[in-house]
Nucleic acid binder design. Structure first.
Lengths: 229, 229
DNA sequence: GAGATAACCGGCAACCCTGCCTGTTTTATT
DNA sequence: AATAAAACAGGCAGGGTTGCCGGTTATCTC
């Protein structure tokens, strides 16, 4: 049983443990450093390509073009399209989560005493679903519904990050410790509503979106009240 | 201002008004009839192709193959991929809505007095988002987020059907007449949650999905209470 | 400094998709 | 019955994508 330490000293260590290989901040070997930089460039371009053209439209050619990298280099880092997709999934999950958690933990640390932490978290999550990475996530999630090969990579990754995510929430909101299932519901409802709004938002317009967001916030507050007593 | 008639005599006339051209049930001219039958077959195959391969992967070739139709016939009915997409969008919206409204109005008519109509409607909607047509809708909605040409066709169609949909709900639940915006929120929350669950469901599993569905149902009942007084 | 190794380059063959275009068969009109 | 028109068939060129492979350059190791 892991001891629960204050979040301010943790800075989402679970995420760091997950991250494979040394990032671009490896100073000793220039070759490896440059290599991992082009790798990152390729993955960033892959996110763009995925968001622009969709999963089926994602082509190694297009990605190499966008990244300003030769097809040879592309093939060196990712031998096949499947390899690229695998790296892409990792990349998308990691960066989206990292972005949210960094923002979240930072604001939790320096929060004004009056601020409602649930509203704050929901607002940050809402911002995170508007990111490029979430666009990529949506593409992948929808494609995985009917592509078994993709699902075989995507679903386990999604489950892993979901687990880490819930763990972080658990640490961030110790008030819910007596009712973890209520917190999980609050989390799931938030994510579901935000995902749904990303799907239907363009049709409904800002006003209707805002109304739904507000109701979701109230629901989470209700759950928090329920958890306290 | 249109007079409000009992739904049982209406059977979603608005939908019939929308539907372009005579369907396959045109008995006079065999040529036209057969033509519209292959057209339907093509569109059905297009739904399959869209769900299987995604919007970018949707190819006229593949659709013709699935429909068991020559490329010539394909080209005759839909001169370009864009034409096919246009027809496909119409087809998907129409059939999904038609399916839901038919089921909904039928069950409303013969509802046992004890049945909660909101739960019933939500259950039917949940079933409808599990349909093939909703899978196609998801593909299109996600693709339209970054494809302007697609969005130019998709968004107006989505708005039109949304309007008809809300109109039908309005007729079906006259109890909300005093608070139409609350009913709209109930509708939007339901659709958003169900969409979000279609995105995240594979990751979360059935138990978590059920919990979210239950909370959404409670929220809708709260809104109904609020609307009554 | 020299060999080993990793990073990168761009061409080739096979395949698929699109849009167009020329025929052929089936149905409608008169 | 004859002409018009709609429905359908399938080939062709142009372009894009994939996976692979031989060659080149930069970096690491000893």
């Amino acid at each position: 049983m892991a001891t629960i330490r204050p979040i301010t000293t943790r800075r989402s260590q679970a995420l760091h443990r997950i991250r494979p290989g040394g990032g671009p901040d490896d100073r000793t070997r220039w070759q490896q450093r440059k290599s991992s930089m082009t790798r990152e460039a390729i993955l960033e371009a892959a996110v763009d390509s995925l968001v622009d053209t969709g999963y089926a439209g994602l082509s190694t050619n297009d990605v190499a073009r966008r990244a300003g990298v030769s097809r040879g280099a592309m093939h060196h880092h990712f031998a096949s399209r499947a390899d690229l997709v695998e790296g892409l999934i990792e990349h998308v999950f990691y960066h989206r989560m990292r972005q949210f958690l960094d923002d979240f933990l930072a604001r939790l640390k320096q929060a004004p005493t009056g601020e409602d932490p649930y509203r704050m978290a929901m607002e940050l999550h809402w911002r995170s679903v508007q990111s490029r990475e979430y666009g990529a996530f949506l593409r992948l999630a929808v494609a995985a519904r009917s592509d078994e090969a993709l699902a075989a990579i995507f679903t386990p990754a999604a489950r892993l990050y979901d687990e880490i995510w819930l763990g972080e929430m658990h640490h961030a909101f110790p008030q819910w410790r007596e009712a973890p299932e209520l917190m999980r519901i609050a989390n799931d409802v938030t994510q579901a509503v935000h995902a749904g709004l990303q799907i239907n938002g363009a049709t409904w317009g800002d006003a209707r979106m805002a109304a739904v967001l507000e109701r979701a916030a109230i629901l989470v507050e209700d759950l928090a009240r329920e958890a306290r007593g």
